[in-house]
Design a protein around this nucleic acid. Structure first.
Lengths: 149, 149
DNA sequence: TATTGTTATACTCTATAACTATA
DNA sequence: TATAGTTATAGAGTATAACAATA
């Protein structure tokens, strides 16, 4: 197996492990990866229409309806009236939603520190740079394969 | 944002992009990520019982039934009788399944080369080592959080 | 006429529980 | 009695299409 295949396989394994850890961390709550992604967007954007969320998550508006329904039922968000457009709803974090996102942001930093712990600051910077290169190339591959269709 | 958070976010982004690219590459076929994972296991193990596949994919036996049904309907695998146990079926690649896996293995190598291209062989080795460290730590985190429950 | 969000319908992945055939 | 796989049922994420209310 070539060195590049080895690295690629490590990236795939890391991706699978991250997904697995995320899923496990939601056990026993009403949260899921998709719902948390939506929460994350609202956390960073502030009150947001469902159309905007559909674009941000790259998912159909119908799907957003379902995710917001579930998050609203569990008390993480509220639909509030849009100030100027009576068709639209502003999805807004409740106190529970805001507290949850604050806690998750903190845990996010902690696991990041844990994973990268032990590398010197120079090594850390280099690793970041190389992953950045891979990220950029991967993005380019996806854009290319998208436009090829 | 700390350096470690930056690296962690890059890993998350790479994970999302890989998932996106994989999903897109299956458009217009009967394949999905889960079905391909099953195909991948059979490719590497040879004819395999569904019980073993359930363990390999870490998924319920019921789920394997559905995945094998779909792959069989699309012509990628066959259920053949187990030589000694009439309860069990051996999931076996058809010619189409074997050709598909050969092609995917080749494409897998190509995208690996593409993504890692441009790094010197020393840099490649170091990147692999550092990702290996992260993979091991992440695995440890997941095992720890699993046993805590 | 165009846009926002919903209802209707369908497919995939996933799980647990009950059941059949076989060991 | 235990195991391999299936049927039954259910929840979650996803999609398209048709529709209502509003712009």
């Amino acid at each position: 197996m070539s060195d590049s295949t080895l690295i690629f396989n490590r990236l795939l394994e890391i991706a699978a492990l991250l997904q697995q850890d995320l899923t496990r961390s939601f056990e026993g709550t009403a949260l899921t990866a998709s719902r948390t992604h939506l929460l994350w967007e609202v956390h960073h954007r502030g009150p947001t229409t469902q159309q905007v969320l559909a674009g941000a998550l790259d998912v159909s508006p119908r799907n957003i309806t379902g995710l917001v329904d579930a998050l609203e039922a569990a008390g993480y968000v509220e639909r509030r009236p849009h100030p100027h457009d009576r068709r639209a709803a502003m999805v807004t974090l409740t106190d529970l939603g805001a507290e949850t996102m604050a806690r998750m942001t903190h845990e996010h930093q902690q696991i990041a520190d844990l994973l990268v712990d032990g590398l010197s600051s120079r090594e850390t910077t280099e690793l970041g740079d190389r992953l950045g290169v891979i990220t950029d190339r991967l993005r380019a591959v996806i854009i290319a394969s998208g436009s090829a269709r």
